[in-house]
Design a protein around this nucleic acid. Structure first.
Lengths: 214, 214
DNA sequence: ACCTGAACACCGTTCAAGT
DNA sequence: ACCTGAACACCGTTCAAGT
């Protein structure tokens, strides 16, 4: 009658069955219910059928937990875009990646605020990330440009989701335009147009050099 | 010997001299000292030589105060870019605006987190904002495009500053590239290239129509 | 109109102690 | 190894009461 009091919401659990991953995913579930301001260590502990002090055995502090939540959300939207056959549309692939980030952020309550946090430098996602760099380079962009492109789109997607989500409660502030979808697409397309222009210009120069040399 | 105890840091103050504006600017000063997590209503009240309960006469709650801080920071960087003579470089003007937002955010501790908050729909900045839309339209962009352009750059600048500032403490996470300055400029230039490409394309189409009609 | 005293219902975090 | 009890030093917010 004592240890069975995990009753609030979490299921009864054996003693050693609580690892970081389940804590993180429970926290993400709880986030949707109570929002980021309601996500206290005490509330989360209750959800897990545990006392809040116990969380400090698994995590250094609340920040570490929140950062891990950010990492988990990014992993949710990284696997999606991948591969590409002979006629591979890198522009659409990039756009889809950016949309996935925004969508994931908007999907859960205060999600953008979580994703705006620093992620733990994952030894995991690292490999997938490097592969994505390679994929972007199929456009013709150099290694550094590919990385900068991904960084830019990440920042833009988070920035957009953050603003869309923060204005959810109140009436639209000064300078908010169009539906969320439309507004986001505009910036996305213009940026990708810029990449294409850059590549086209480069191709032109290369051709003119070749002609002169030949 | 009783009311003179405003001694901590704030200067002694007459009774009715405390308005929202001075509270906001004091809060911004304090933010630089203690960071956003250290910015409590009690600490701020002490800085003002007041009790924390008194803040609730001036502001509905802490959120309202933080949003006003966001508004104040945006006002800091709006006045900067303006005017433009005969050979007006709208691209450079836009870029400067985006840089100003990022710079302002990075200038003070946790500034990006503050600027990421919803701003109060200011009856003030509204006029300046509409004027800026007109300025952007000198590029040839339509009204809505001009607004979307500004919105995109705002989101990107905040997104970038947010990430740069959040990674300040720890070592670089996966996918952080270049110095802050360089990384930001890349996205900025590509986006502006995209706008130019769009305008050039439009001019070409217009010319071909004219030719056909003439 | 503007501010205080005092309280309410919470926080994050630490640490000895339990099993 | 994993968790609890109990405490510490805080929070944001409310509200009667003061001036």
């Amino acid at each position: 009658m004592k240890r069975s009091g995990a009753a609030t919401a979490g299921s009864v659990r054996a003693k050693g069955s609580l690892d970081r991953a389940t804590i993180v995913s429970t926290a993400l579930l709880l986030l949707d219910e109570v929002g980021i301001d309601g996500l206290s260590t005490r509330r989360l502990a209750a959800e897990l059928g545990i006392k809040s002090a116990s969380l400090y055995w698994h995590f250094k502090d609340k920040n570490e937990l929140l950062n891990e939540m950010s990492g988990a959300m990014f992993e949710e939207c990284l696997p999606a875009p991948n591969v590409g056959g002979a006629n591979f549309d890198w522009a659409e692939w990039l756009a889809e990646g950016a949309r996935a980030i925004r969508r994931t952020a908007l999907t859960r309550r205060d999600g953008a605020q979580v994703m705006a946090r620093p992620r733990p430098r994952a030894p995991v996602g690292r490999a997938a990330f490097e592969e994505n760099v390679k994929t972007v380079m199929r456009s013709g962009l150099a290694d550094m440009e590919a990385r900068l492109t991904m960084q830019t789109l990440r920042r833009y997607a988070i920035g957009a989701a953050l603003q869309e989500q923060s204005n959810k409660g109140g009436s639209a502030a000064v300078g908010i335009v169009g539906t969320g979808e439309e507004g986001f697409e505009f910036g996305l397309q213009v940026f990708i147009d810029g990449l294409k222009a850059r590549l086209a210009e480069r191709a032109k120069v290369a051709k003119s050099i070749k002609k002169r040399a030949g």
